[in-house]
């Protein structure tokens, strides 16, 4: 059984080649790790006849010595691990993330959903049945109070004892 992961440094050509067992990392992890390094190194992905992933790394700038190439290969290995862990965490929390996002989107758009509003087809957008659009000054100014009819003026008079045409319900002589 071959090694899961091997590194070969070729100083003469200035390349480091990582060989990974095909079952060690999924392809998207390899893509993700390679993508992180393409601003600093030339990355070429390949496959060996036995299916292993080959990652060929070459520094863009700087010395092409063993130390540099070893560091670059090590960085790639770290990034592979990082990507693999990130993928695992994302997968484990996928349902939770989807639930949170769905609720957030649902909550944000729910208030704007036309179906939520009561159907008031006969109301115009200029109608103000609750008097919300009346300015504060106008509503509470003295003139407005003066003009405003009092309760006595607006409340219809109810029938009471004084309206009985002088009839007193108490019997004569019953009063003390």
């Amino acid at each position: 059984m071959g090694d899961l992961e091997t590194v070969k440094i070729d100083v003469e050509q200035g390349v480091a080649v990582l060989s990974l067992d095909k079952g060690l990392y999924p392809l998207d992890v390899v893509y993700g790790a390679a993508y992180v390094l393409i601003d600093r190194a030339y990355v070429l992905l390949d496959r060996a006849p036995d299916g292993r992933f080959l990652i060929r790394l070459q520094v863009k700038e700087g010395p092409l010595d063993t130390k540099t190439l070893t560091a670059l290969a090590g960085e790639m290995q770290n990034e592979l691990l990082s990507q693999a862990l990130r993928r695992k965490i994302t997968k484990a929390n996928k349902q939770l993330l989807e639930t949170i996002v769905t609720r957030a989107i649902g909550g944000a758009t729910g208030a704007l959903t036309p179906g939520v509003f009561p159907e008031e087809d006969d109301l115009d957008f200029l109608d103000d049945p609750l008097g919300i659009a009346v300015p504060w000054e106008e509503r509470f100014s003295k003139d407005a109070k003066k003009d405003k009819p009092t309760d006595a003026e607006t409340t219809p008079e109810l029938a009471g004892p004084g309206d009985s045409g002088g009839f007193s319900p108490t019997k004569k002589g019953s009063e003390p």
Binding site: Y31, G32, A34, Y35, I38, Y42, V43, L44, Q58
Partner: peptide, 19 residues
């Protein structure tokens, strides 16, 4: 000197973006 390497990097970036 670098066109082949840069081409490969560009193609890799395109693949990753599409994934």
């Amino acid at each position: 000197e670098v066109i082949a390497h840069e081409f490969a990097n560009f193609a890799l970036a395109e693949v990753v973006e599409s994934v």
